[in-house]
């Protein structure tokens, strides 16, 4: 998922480039996303499906209706659903049409792929209404059906944005649709960039929408790692359990006692040997005699 925002950013930039440089504007999909839909083998694909359609032409006004037709034998169906908008507290009217392919998997799951978005251009009344919103820093609201197969499903999914966040060069919008199978849980709607709080009044240069749509489904949580016994054992050690000390040799353990002991013993032995040396001397002759002998032997030298 890390790369996703970067990717969208790239797409956004390219789309800007396209929309500004090319006079010809088409609703052609820039990216064939069939691959994306197929890539995730299960129906809860973690890869988002996104489209990018700098749409500025206005198709004939359609009633918000859903056409369903079965094209393929493999249970793929084309569906359409309407994006509706409201200015402030006004009623919702149609603002554009999403069309997509609904893939039904063998295990019953459904995924939406190949999403295209066709936005209607603002009529004059709508422009006026939007200008009023901009002046009042009011909300521009959109809504989608909560189920794309049987719209509107249980209830409409609503999102709104302060109208002053949208105008840039044209009108930039960024729609993130959170899906679960054929259900729409929530839609995030807003400008693709920042919209810091003291919002300045800025009228759009062009009354055309740059729409970026992302389809998101839920991420699977990674499974909790289960470690094998040995890793577990070593890791438990780290957690504060008393580490079993490596068995050290007798010498390594007790050298600090043994050395002094050795010294003491050696000392004692030398003492004892000294004693032993002196003792025989003492026993052979009388100590005074020995002294006498020593002094006697020394005396002549002095003399």
């Amino acid at each position: 998922m890390l790369t996703m925002p970067k990717l969208t950013l790239l797409l956004f930039l390219t789309s800007l480039l396209l929309s500004s440089s090319l006079a010809f504007q088409s609703d052609e999909l820039l990216l064939d996303d069939v691959e994306f839909g197929l890539e995730g083998a299960n129906h809860r694909s973690t890869e988002p499906v996104f489209t990018d359609s700098p749409a500025s032409f206005s198709p004939p006004k359609q009633k918000p209706s859903i056409r369903k037709r079965y094209s393929d034998p493999d249970l793929d169906s084309k569906i359409q659903f309407t994006l509706e908008h409201a200015f402030g507290d006004s009623d919702f009217t149609s603002a554009g049409i999403f069309s997509a392919r609904l893939k039904t998997w063998s295990h019953g799951g459904q995924t939406l792929t190949k999403l295209r978005f066709l936005r209607n251009e603002f009529s004059d009344e709508e422009k006026d209404a939007f200008n009023n919103l901009l002046k009042g820093d009011d909300f521009y609201r959109i809504r989608l059906p909560s189920n794309v197969v049987t719209p509107p499903g249980r209830e409409y999914v609503i999102a709104s944005v302060r109208a002053r966040c949208l105008p840039r060069d044209g009108l930039d919008e960024h729609i993130v649709i959170h899906m679960d199978g054929a259900n729409i849980l929530a839609v995030s709607y807003g400008s693709p960039g920042a919209c810091p709080y003291p919002r300045q009044l800025k009228l759009p240069g062009k009354w055309s929408f740059n729409s970026h749509t992302i389809l998101k489904s839920s991420e699977q949580a990674p499974r909790t790692p289960i470690f094998t016994e040995e890793i577990l054992g070593s890791s438990e050690n780290v957690e504060g359990e008393a580490e079993v000390p490596v068995e050290r040799s007798f010498w390594a353990k007790y050298w600090m006692y043994l050395i002094p002991l050795g010294l003491v013993v050696m000392n004692a032995v030398t003492q004892a040997s000294n004693m032993a040396e002196e003792q025989p001397a003492g026993s052979q002759g009388q100590p005074p005699a020995a002294i006498q002998r020593v002094s006697g032997s020394a005396a002549p030298r002095r003399r």
């Binding site: 609201r141 909560s146 189920n147 609503i158 709104s160 199978g181 929530a186």
Partner: peptide, 14 residues
């Protein structure tokens, strides 16, 4: 008050 946004959880699965 006015409603700004809704998150609708599919009743059959959540």
């Amino acid at each position: 008050t006015r409603e700004l946004w809704t998150v609708v959880f599919p009743s059959e699965s959540e």
